[in-house]
Amino acid sequence: MKLDPLDLKNISSLTLAHYNEHAEHFWEGTKDHDVGQNIAALLKYIEGKSPYTILDFGCGPGRDLKVFTELGHIAIGLEGAPRFVEMARSHTGCEVWHQDFLGLDLPHEYFDGIFANASLFHVPGSELPRVLTELCNTLKPGGVLFSSNPRGNDEEGWTHGRYGVYHDIERWRGYMAAAEFVEITHYYRPVGRPCAQQPWFASVWRKVGE
């Protein structure tokens, strides 16, 4: 779906406004979610000596940012919703960058890993190749990206005040390969349920070494 600059501006502003408006409710509803499987999946495949420098992409109020820090890693959050930025800084004491997903300003080859848990699906399909390339560029050679997205059949549009893209596995693989990532593994969540009751698709990718 091709979107013009005004469309993209509206997507960002309205989606972020939704999160700002519901920030406290979102925190209460998600602060106890167990995503330990996802955190472990990222850390398992990062090579080199710990502690790792990790970008929590779309860190929200800071739940997972705090976990990475408690595990001894250097964790930096990135978040577009101003209220979430404030909450994440307060809850974790970590550095949190206030950046829109569609207007990133990232250092070159800085991070060992990127944790994109329930965040990249907010990037419109037309902009995803560029955003994934920017994320690839901010990883060190051989660095690892984890993503978790709601499953779908490539539907794209508005749901409950937020813009999202609901990828299938093959389309997602195409996006990631084009950005010079190679697949390490993937799985569906929540674990232990029948496939029809696993709405989340998690995957781990390595930046092609230089």
Rank of each mutant, 00 (worst) to 15 (best):
K2M: 10
P5I: 08
P5N: 09
L8V: 03
N10F: 03
S12L: 14
S12M: 13
S13F: 06
L14R: 14
L16R: 12
A17T: 10
A17C: 08
H18L: 00
H18A: 05
E21W: 07
E21Y: 02
E21F: 07
H25A: 07
H25T: 08
H25L: 07
W27Q: 13
D32T: 06
D34I: 00
D34Q: 03
N38K: 02
A40R: 13
A41Y: 10
A41T: 08
A41N: 12
L42Q: 13
L43E: 02
K44H: 05
Y45A: 05
E47D: 15
E47N: 10
G48C: 11
K49T: 08
L55V: 14
D56G: 06
D56C: 05
D56S: 07
G58C: 05
P61D: 08
G62A: 05
L65P: 09
K66A: 09
K66N: 06
G72Q: 05
G77K: 02
G77L: 02
E79S: 00
P82Q: 01
R89F: 02
H91R: 14
H91C: 00
T92S: 11
C94Y: 06
W97F: 04
H98N: 05
H98V: 00
L102H: 11
G103V: 03
D105N: 02
D105S: 05
D105C: 03
D112R: 01
D112T: 01
G113R: 11
G113C: 13
L120V: 15
L120H: 04
V123Q: 02
V123E: 12
P124Q: 12
S126H: 06
L132P: 07
E134G: 01
L135T: 06
N137Q: 09
T138A: 11
T138Q: 14
T138N: 13
L139G: 10
S147P: 11
S148Y: 13
N149Q: 15
P150H: 15
R151P: 07
R151I: 11
G152N: 08
G152I: 04
E156W: 03
T159A: 12
Y163E: 11
G164E: 07
Y166L: 13
H167N: 05
D168T: 11
W172M: 10
W172C: 02
Y175T: 09
A177G: 07
A177W: 01
A178K: 10
A178Y: 00
V182E: 15
E183A: 01
I184Q: 05
G192F: 06
G192A: 10
A196G: 05
P199C: 08
W200Y: 08
F201W: 14
F201D: 03
A202S: 15
S203N: 04
E210V: 05
